[in-house]
């Protein structure tokens, strides 16, 4: 039997799609297709293969950028969280990055790195990395000091304390940073395709808008959201699998 939470998710999806369908039929705007029209367009894009060649293009900067952001971001976050000096040095950079207007930075990136893959990867990283770094750093700093003291009193080395206490204790917040960072990375990937050169999914969006094929445009947007949601769910599964005890809450009372 499907679980209650699964049924609730399905219900909320049905409500959202139902509202979309109604808004499309009213219509809210001539440029707003119904849900069913968009799904038909999505099926067509999938059948003629356009969607898959587009994703082959889009996923490259996305995957690369997300991977770099995750590895570098967590490493930097750990470093910043563990050392007061690096906190002082690097934290402001990421706070600024997080609030920088990306659209204004893109021309600079293009000037420096051209219109190829490098610039797009940079955009994804600029979007994804700050929240990963800042979440990781604050999670590390908020490790309960009694746990690190406990590990030290039982002769844990600095590395033991980091690997066996600080990282597991910080992992829920690190993972939530990863989730936020990856969502932002998806936005960055599409943004870079809209602002730098129209390729991949960004190209479908730009092109179908230019020929007023709004159903295909929304189909492309829908597909990227779907992909993001699926990926984030996968990440959640991985987290539950890796740190089974962490959803059990802290024991301090």
């Amino acid at each position: 039997m499907p679980s209650r939470s699964f049924l609730l998710k399905m219900l909320s999806l049905a409500i959202v799609f139902g509202a979309w369908e109604i808004a499309g039929r009213v219509p809210v705007s001539y440029a707003f297709p119904t849900f069913l029209e968009s799904m038909r367009a999505l099926a067509l894009l999938a059948i003629d293969g356009t969607l898959f060649t587009a994703y082959a293009e889009t996923l490259r900067p996305l995957a690369l950028g997300v991977l770099i952001s995750a590895i570098l971001g967590i490493a930097l976050g750990l470093w910043i969280g563990l050392s007061a000096r690096f906190d002082w040095l690097f934290s402001p950079i990421f706070v600024v990055m997080q609030s920088a207007p990306l659209a204004a930075l893109i021309p600079l990136l293009v000037m420096a790195y051209g219109i190829g893959l490098t610039s797009k990867v940079f955009v994804v990283c600029i979007m994804a990395m700050p929240v990963i770094v800042l979440n990781t750093a604050s999670a590390v700093r908020n490790t309960p000091s009694s746990l690190t003291e406990m590990a030290r009193s039982f002769l844990g080395s600095r590395l033991d304390v980091i690997l066996k206490v600080i990282i597991p204790a910080a992992s829920p917040v690190i993972f939530s940073g990863l989730r936020l960072g990856i969502s932002a990375g998806f936005i960055g990937a599409i943004l870079s395709e809209l602002k730098i050169t129209p390729t991949g999914v960004g190209d479908i969006i730009t092109y179908s808008r230019s020929i007023a094929d709004y159903a295909s445009m929304y189909a492309a947007i829908f597909s990227i959201i779907l992909l993001a949601v699926l990926f984030l769910n996968l990440l959640e599964k991985l987290e539950l699998h890796l740190f089974r005890g962490n959803n059990r809450g802290y024991v301090t009372d």
Binding site: L147, M150, S153, F154, L155, F243, G245, R248, G249, Y250
Partner: peptide, 20 residues
């Protein structure tokens, strides 16, 4: 520093919540 000749029992228990 800490040594093998001493063991600590903590006021707030200091148990790893993710460990059995």
């Amino acid at each position: 520093g800490p040594g093998p000749d001493r063991a600590f029992v903590f006021q707030d228990f200091a148990l790893l919540p993710w460990a059995s």
